[in-house]
Design a protein around this nucleic acid. Structure first.
Lengths: 346, 346
DNA sequence: CACAGGCGTGTAAACCTTTTCCCGTTCTGC
DNA sequence: GCAGAACGGGAAAAGGTTTACACGCCTGTG
């Protein structure tokens, strides 16, 4: 592969087979204008002519060329979605939701994964902006100036879990500050004093929001130890050992995906959750209720997130920032802090 | 929402701002042909003129209109991916892989989820076929005639986990027959005699392949009890109670997603895996290694799947069916059958 | 010195659809 | 019976880009 340059020829010869509106017009013995009117429903047309046109269209298997339609109407009826990791169930849920909403309105969805790379994110966004009527960026990591550049390049820009001081850019954000506060209060009420936070990707806006929540918790007297981590399952798995050197009684992961990796590594080490250590996540991924132990987390509906994001694409919608607040979901992964901490290798 | 019809006006007024090749040509005082040659790199151009054109393009922020390019060259440099459930980690992985491969070759990816509905699947496929250079259908449920219709409507069709006797349709399929045989042999060697199979969606090709494997196992003397289920986590969760009425010692789920739901329900019922009952899945989803107990499953690399599928889009590639064979991954969810079965509600 | 060839650039057609404007016919109302 | 309206349908332009063809100039060679 990597030499797809050569398919120009194949494409052209293939295309030769597709019927155009002219073929239909010729067969039905009418003008192309009439064909368009019959099929796209403009002005009224005699029933007899309409039938003839429809029969002709059926016979040659006519389907309007979307490129021509797009060129003419200046809208492709397509939105673009850019996400750091399409394999992450959280983004997969969002993509599922938004594409379903879009499809219900006759819109298509173009996707791009960026592998968490801000540079690729920028390039993908700029590239997609050429094609689509609206662009949805999930948790974008790129700098604010570049984000503004993207906003200028495209039609309509909507952000998920990132805000940008800019007119005409909509956003839907989860109130992670609130979420983290709830988690800290919950753990505090269970007697946890030393809590490790496994940080998300550097410069991620949504990580900064969480950090705000932790500062609030610190101001209230709790001890938060920050350990660099990331956003994937592997990141969580890999960060556990360092986290344990700080001898925490509880552990908050950047998100549920990370938390699953954490639980996996803890199990390997023979450390029992929640008896030896409590673990909490953020996002309430679909599987979080079904793993053992069930994961305590901050839940916000991805369905709602997708719905709200799609609303932003309505041209009459105001371009503001919608704050979504979730709720604490307590499951089996958090419990009262052990009276005496056992050695970390149990 | 649902009244996006009105955005024609907004779109038109927005589009007014975008610079065309004519604007660049006027500013650089050359013809549009020269601009195209400079930017798309065709025939040679004087360095001085090229610089002038590039400067002009930069100044007005020119980006070629993809609809016009598509219309002309008859290729949109886009592929379409249709999957039953974008939220299912298995399909999310495949989407991630194929879109990354496509992006590396400068192609875009259009997606559609079908919510497991064959009717929507057909409509989505036909609709996407108008737009794209190639269509990738993941585990399609539609009938063979309709599949052929889709093949005729589009440029290039590639199937994942489904075969179709038809020239010019490529396919990449996992050898589930082999996988199920391995799982049955594995369980047999552990002394399991009564195995429940939680069936996938009705009419799913990949379920039929699994059934073939089970018939082989039955021919070898094993007892397989079939229980209707589905392909989602909830389906697995919901099918457990009925499955238990058959008093099996082991349980094979349609896929890992289902198996996770099964484990969850078993835990609720106080039934221990693998002591009371063994559980196995199929697909080796990313999380399967990280849950407790680790899931015994049949693993085939989704990366490989995506890579092979993309290869099929190369116009010089033969349109054949590629069989991918995986391997048994034994984890903690399967063990020797209990000597005496406890009551199912233990 | 003249002519051929090559290189750089412009012109215009083609890609396919929608929609505006216009014309011709038929029907209505006075 | 005639004027005007209403309605069905056709011709043509617009939308932005690429590319085949043509043209002019410069250079190198006979």
């Amino acid at each position: 592969m990597r030499q797809h340059r050569s398919d120009r020829h194949a494409a052209t010869s293939d295309r030769a087979g597709r019927a155009t509106i002219h073929d239909v017009a010729r067969l039905a013995e009418v003008s192309t204008a009439t064909v368009s009117r019959v099929l796209s429903g403009g002005k009224p047309v005699t029933a007899q002519v309409a039938d003839r046109v429809r029969a002709a269209a059926q016979e040659v298997g006519y389907r309007p060329n979307p490129a021509a339609q797009t060129l003419l109407r200046g809208s492709s009826r397509t939105i673009g979605v850019v996400a750091p990791d399409l394999g992450n169930p959280y983004f997969a849920e969002i993509l599922k939701g938004i594409s379903a909403e879009a499809a219900a309105d006759g819109y298509h969805t173009l996707v791009a994964g960026t592998d968490e790379d801000p540079e690729r994110e920028y390039r993908s966004a700029i590239e997609l902006a050429r094609w689509v009527d609206g662009l949805l960026l999930c948790a974008p990591r790129m700098s604010a100036p570049r984000l503004k550049e993207v906003a200028a390049a495209g039609r309509k820009l909507v952000l998920i879990n990132r805000v940008l001081r800019h007119p005409s850019v909509g956003a839907v954000v989860v109130d992670y500050h609130h979420g983290v506060r709830l988690l800290c209060e919950h753990l505090g009420s269970l007697g946890h004093k030393r809590i490790v936070y496994l940080e998300g990707p550097p410069n991620a806006w949504s990580d900064q929001q969480r950090q705000r929540g932790f500062r609030t918790a610190e101001a209230a007297g709790q001890t938060i130890i920050r350990v660099p981590c990331g956003s994937s399952l592997r990141d969580g798995y890999g960060a556990v050992d360092e986290a344990l050197t700080h001898r925490p009684t509880a552990l908050i992961a950047f998100n549920d995906h990370v938390a699953v990796g954490v639980l996996s590594r803890l199990r390997e080490l023979g450390i029992t959750v929640p008896d030896d250590i409590s673990v909490a996540g953020v996002d309430d991924a679909p599987m979080s209720a079904h793993i053992d132990p069930g994961l305590t987390t901050y839940a916000v509906s991805t369905v709602e997130l997708g719905r709200r994001a799609w609303q932003h694409f309505n041209p009459t919608a105001p371009t503001n920032t919608i704050h979504l607040t979730g709720e604490l979901v307590v499951r089996a992964s958090t419990a009262r802090a052990a009276r005496r901490r056992r050695t970390s290798q149990a």
